[in-house]
């Protein structure tokens, strides 16, 4: 029951992006299309799962003073693997995501989960926590990507949503649009959470 809670909490109640407001850099930067968002979600999920697994395994042998340094080495290893893999097998996606794949190293969701959870809990709980957080991150990026791509390009995952009458709302795929959508979604998440809390 407890494990289930660890798995579910990241989806909504402790959503890493909208509630904890972590990892906003990729959230704002690569959500101009759903395809880029999916690539980013996959890369982050891989890194988060891998490093949570390793960190919870080694948590007892790492001295407290150098834990952050050790976590960063572990995370950077997974990030570099993800980056090379994308460059080798998905060159187009790798080009579109640009520097934001190597930048996963400094994504606060990942280091945050290691520090707050994986370094204090067992392997199974840590992996479930990482999986739940990845899903939460995925939900957030898919929402951002869908809203921005539909309004900004009139398409979803490259498929036409509107007829030819629709004039794309170009600002949505520019950085300014990212901030608009992000603000509205945080507002939405928080008002729903508040409404539930009152009950």
């Amino acid at each position: 029951m407890n494990l289930l809670k660890e798995f579910i909490k990241g989806w909504w109640k402790e959503n890493p992006v909208f509630v904890m407001v972590l990892g906003t850099c990729p959230t704002l930067a690569v959500t101009n299309s759903v395809k880029n968002a999916i690539g980013m979600i996959a890369a982050v999920a891989f890194v988060l799962l891998g490093s949570s697994f390793i960190v919870s395994l080694i948590r007892k042998i790492v001295p407290n003073q150098v834990r952050i340094a050790t976590f960063i080495v572990v995370i950077a290893t997974f990030v570099t693997m993800a980056d090379r893999y994308l460059a080798a097998f998905y060159p187009q996606l790798s080009k579109a995501l640009g520097p934001y794949v190597p930048l996963i190293v400094v994504n606060c969701i990942i280091l945050g989960r290691q520090e707050a959870f994986a370094s204090k809990n067992g392997v199974l709980a840590s992996v479930l926590d990482a999986l739940g957080m990845s899903i939460g991150f995925g939900i957030a990026l898919m929402l951002m990507g869908s809203v921005r791509e539909i309004l900004g390009s009139g398409t979803w995952l490259g498929m036409k949503v509107f007829g030819s009458w629709y004039i794309p709302w170009q600002v949505m795929i520019l950085p300014a649009g990212a901030f608009f959508v992000f603000g509205f979604l945080i507002w939405g998440f928080n008002s729903i959470n508040k409404a539930f809390a009152k009950r």
Binding site: I61, Q65, V66, T70, V73, V74
Partner: peptide
């Protein structure tokens, strides 16, 4: 500390 960091 030295051993752990080196090994990793």
């Amino acid at each position: 500390i030295v051993i752990v960091l080196t090994v990793f």
